[in-house]
């Protein structure tokens, strides 16, 4: 563990990719994630069946050549649903996670670094943590659904509402974690030294604070993607989600749970898709963290 190999100094960006490339898990995660994205983007052209196409005669079927993954209780094709659902789930998962982690990091860093903002921001976090989620969402639907629908059309309007609802109700954990770390960093020698040298706040955050809290942030991000994908399905049961004829992985998994003993494929595939996405995001996160850590060097196996 104490043995280390020292890299000769190389330009920063090259070093980043070099480090990232030597991380086998990260590369594998990147490849899988790229494949998933490619599948949901190109898939509907390769497999052009309409996911909403009902075929009662073929309901609740196992895999066959007409339906490689089988069908649901109305005879809708699962493969087509999985490909179309992936677009929704990935988009919601990534955007909502980005919103939550971005907001959480912003609040956490500000509160941790600036004493004056600490108390008000943390009390705001307390407030958001205490609000009961369901009534909050019901109020959100009541107040904004119709105006967003009028402004952006039914689908984009609901997308904004969903992403907003998930993002604005899940930033608090990240904020508290980041703040806790920053509080501890604030008193470290290198930060005090940097302050003494007159480093500007933004440079300070970028150069000294963020790289050192990156680990927990990336964990938040990884967990956040999974959380958002699953929360989206929960929302559709409040009438806040997409209409029932728009498939998503979370929704397919939820509906499929009831049919688990009839057609196991209905839980296996969406479950696998969600797990693979979360796992690959996790490994990418690991690779990013290792590659971005300025002091980090890959341990050599003894």
């Amino acid at each position: 563990m104490t043995e280390r190999t020292l890299h000769p100094p190389v330009p920063r960006r090259t070093a980043f990719w070099h480090r990232f490339g030597t991380h086998r898990g990260a590369v594998a995660g990147m490849v899988i994630f790229a494949l998933i994205i490619l599948a949901v983007l190109v898939g509907p052209w390769v497999w052009p069946l309409d996911p909403a196409q009902i075929d009662i005669a073929a309901k609740t079927q196992g895999p066959s050549s007409a339906h490689p993954l089988g069908t649901d209780q109305l005879g809708r094709d699962l493969l087509a649903g999985l490909l179309a659902g992936g677009r929704v789930s990935l988009l919601v998962g990534l955007v909502a996670m980005g919103l939550a982690v971005g907001l959480g990091t912003l609040v956490g860093v500000t509160a941790g670094l600036l004493r004056r903002w600490d108390a008000p921001l943390m009390r705001l976090t307390d407030l958001f943590l205490s609000l009961p989620l369901l009534p909050l969402l019901m109020v959100a639907i009541m107040l904004w659904r119709d105006s967003l629908r009028a402004q952006f059309g039914p689908e984009t309007g609901i997308f904004i509402l969903i992403v907003g609802a998930i993002g604005l109700t899940s930033w608090m954990q990240t904020a508290r974690i980041v703040r806790g770390e920053v509080l501890s960093l604030r008193e470290r020698e290198f930060v005090i030294a940097a302050t003494a040298l007159g480093t500007r706040p933004f440079a300070m955050i970028r150069r000294h604070i963020l790289p050192n809290v990156l680990g927990p942030i990336l964990v938040s991000a990884t967990l956040g993607v999974g959380h958002a994908i699953l929360t989206e399905s929960a929302l559709s049961f409040l009438g806040l989600g997409f209409p029932s004829d728009v498939p998503s992985w979370g929704r397919m998994l939820f509906d499929g749970t009831h049919y688990m003993t009839l057609t196991p494929a209905r839980v296996v595939w969406p479950g696998l898709a969600i797990s693979l996405t979360v796992l690959s995001v996790n490994y990418i996160g690991d690779g990013l963290r290792d590659a971005l850590d300025p002091r980090w060097t890959r341990p050599v196996r003894r």
């Binding site: 967990l223 999974g226 699953l230 998994l253 969600i274 797990s275 996405t277 979360v278 796992l279």
Partner: peptide
């Protein structure tokens, strides 16, 4: 990670 991505309803 698999444990986290498998929801409790399932």
């Amino acid at each position: 990670m698999v444990g986290f991505s498998v929801p409790s309803f399932f």
